[in-house]
Write a protein that binds this DNA or RNA. Structure first.
Lengths: 185, 185
DNA sequence: TTCTTGGTATACCGACCGGTATGGTTACCA
DNA sequence: TGGTAACCATACCGGTCGGTATACCAAGAA
């Protein structure tokens, strides 16, 4: 990817997340990235593809941050995943989940929806791994689903409610779940 | 509200929820409601106000349905609230939560955001009442928050994932929570 | 009977949308 | 030396956006 293309992607990621995909035109993206529309279209071909790349890019940043946190962390690493939502330096999570937000405004046939589904599936699967690792005694699938739902609920509410400590609450709830394994059966 | 105005609001509710607020123009709303744009603007004044009324309308429909379910239900009524998300006849919940979706695409200064916050706060408070009623022994605030997060997570994923039984899972988890009161402290 | 209310139909406005066309400039590389 | 790749600037395209203007019509109330 060329420097200009990288700049476009970075700017698009920031603006799409902050203001919504449909509210941000390609002209604004190009102008903010100090690039001509021609260059933008030479790099991405269409807004649709730019949106897909935005989602993929966002996933990659988040995923590599997660894996790095996991590599450095001690047990239980399930809580490390929860913490990763709070500690991320690059993507400021203050408008909820970029993927849920995108899913809310993209048309039903947009290829970006596949990226969103894959992202959620990946997080959900990684979470199941970690729960199985942390609490082998409990029904890990069920506890993973439980924690996943809590997390999704908390993140969806970031930027809506004022009190952002919901993720912290999820952390505490997850701790209890790992201990006594409730949510099984 | 005049008959034409009512028709506009009904159509707008359906289209805004199905396709997203920013993707639906006032011209399409007017045309679908078999009404002139002039009539639409006589009734609502602006798209912004139409959006606010859409959210309020959606809340009122949902709320009256909930209260009716609660009036007819036996204990525990916490589960009745969960069920209400599944059983609603009028508003087909197949694209996630209308309020979370709207919050994802509205600009930060849109007055509709207040309606969204109020709606969520109301549901959250009603849930706390019901938990206190169903399980007086447990820390009702904490369990209510727990169930609320589960519900929000499940509803946010309707229309993204294929398997829609997440609300059913929440029902089961909530049952367990009411029994043993975990999530407290 | 006149006047207000709630409509109709149509045409228009400026602004913005995603996307394209033309042409020029730099810099590196064979 | 010549060519190609990565950019720049600008202007334009058809279409849609939210919103307004003009003019007409029908029914119920004064």
């Amino acid at each position: 990817m060329t420097p200009a293309g990288q700049r476009v992607l970075d700017v698009a990621s920031r603006l799409f997340y902050r203001d919504g995909i449909n509210s941000v035109g390609v002209a604004l993206v190009a102008e903010t990235a100090e690039v001509t529309k021609k260059t933008l279209y030479d790099c991405f071909g269409s807004k649709q593809k730019l949106v897909v790349d935005y989602l993929r890019h966002r996933h990659e940043i988040w995923w590599s941050h997660l894996e790095q946190c996991l590599a450095e962390a001690g047990r239980p690493r399930t809580l490390t995943l929860v913490d990763a939502y709070l500690t991320h330096p690059n993507l400021r999570i203050n408008r909820g989940c970029a993927f849920l937000n995108a899913a809310a405004e993209l048309p039903a046939d947009h290829p970006g929806l596949d990226v969103i589904r894959d992202h959620k599936k990946a997080v959900r699967a990684r979470l199941a791994d970690l729960v199985a690792e942390d609490a082998p005694a409990v029904d890990s699938e069920s506890v993973a689903e439980h924690v996943f739902l809590l997390l999704e609920g908390a993140i969806a509410h970031i930027g809506i409610d004022d009190h952002n400590n919901r993720v912290q609450q999820v952390r505490q709830l997850a701790t209890t779940l790992l201990d006594n394994g409730h949510g099984d059966r």
